[in-house]
Write a protein that binds this DNA or RNA. Structure first.
Lengths: 173, 173
DNA sequence: AAACACTAAGTGATTACTCACTTATCATAG
DNA sequence: CTATGATAAGTGAGTAATCACTTAGTGTTT
């Protein structure tokens, strides 16, 4: 990975997240990255290839987080970690998440790859906690997390920490 | 409102919702609507004006629904209606909601106009039901609804009706 | 006849992408 | 050590197509 290659990925992610994928031109990415436009196509073949490289990059970091949760033993500890996941997104990861959430609505792009691993984590938790409908409870938590993530990524004021505590209370965590 | 004018609004909404605002060209809207491209600019001034006309159109229908809930008396009945709102989106309203949710992520566009009216409805409900933190509970419900709406609009399988029932049970509705 | 709805053929700017070319990297042969 | 040559990295000026938008003009209503 060249330095210029990384610059392209970095500024493309930032621009895609801020203005949207199709509203961001390759020429703008090149200009902002201080690179010739041709270089983008040399390294990433086309605009979509650039997007895929960005997504693949982010997905790898994601797997690490998932695995670290999966290795925990105590069910309530796992549930706590899962629920507060949206709150643990740190500043430099935000553009990636914004891009991911924006792309969901982009027709063809939508990707459920995060959904199943999460279910695999949550269902055993609710089984261990003797909930009546573990699968349904898992889906509900995932819906909640989706809402929380949107809430946080779009910076809608409110105190997210308090909402988290409220959810913890409801699940007796 | 001319027939062609309505055709433009209708097909533009459909295309914006399917492919995104900036990925949809005015020429495509015109072609699909069976109309000359110039007509779009005559009636709506520019592409953004077309978008605003679509949004204004939808917002008016929205106000009607909000008011009908606001006029109810029984707190639990209100809460029930609010929570099942995402499930009552019928097929011909879906494109509007998809567009609205997609636009949230479009940087400059985001619009909180739905948030405050909803809070005004929910806070009195939780006060009447003697919840400890009415405002926080309202925010949580709104976050949940946001998640549910995404879930439904993106057609992620699962049984939304069952999830709704589970939520009802948790709020003792 | 005046306002209105509408079309067809434009406008310059910008789009994603290509191509011919130069420069840097680096292993191996003399 | 240096020269050679292959490969990858990078440039900048192109390309046709498409973009949002305009303009000049044609029918239709009132």
């Amino acid at each position: 990975m060249t330095e210029k290659q990384e610059r392209i990925l970095e500024t493309a992610l930032s621009l895609f997240a801020k203005d949207g994928f199709s509203a961001t031109s390759t020429s703008k990415v090149a200009r902002e990255a201080g690179v010739s436009e041709g270089l983008i196509f040399r390294h990433f073949e086309n605009k979509e290839g650039l997007l895929n490289a960005i997504l693949e990059n982010g997905r790898q970091k994601l797997t690490v987080i998932f695995d670290s949760i999966h290795h925990l033993e105590e069910p309530k500890e796992i549930l706590r970690r899962v629920i507060e996941l949206p709150l643990t997104i740190d500043e430099d990861q935000r553009p990636f998440w914004k891009l991911l959430y924006a792309l969901k609505w982009q027709a063809d792009v939508y990707d459920d790859s995060m959904s199943n691993p999460m279910k695999d984590i949550l269902i055993p938790v609710f089984e261990a906690l003797n909930y009546h409908q573990p699968e349904l409870e898992s889906e509900l938590v995932m819906v909640l997390m989706d809402g929380m993530a949107s809430h946080i990524l779009l910076k809608r004021s409110g105190n997210v920490e308090d909402i988290k505590e409220l959810i913890f209370k409801k699940y007796d965590l």
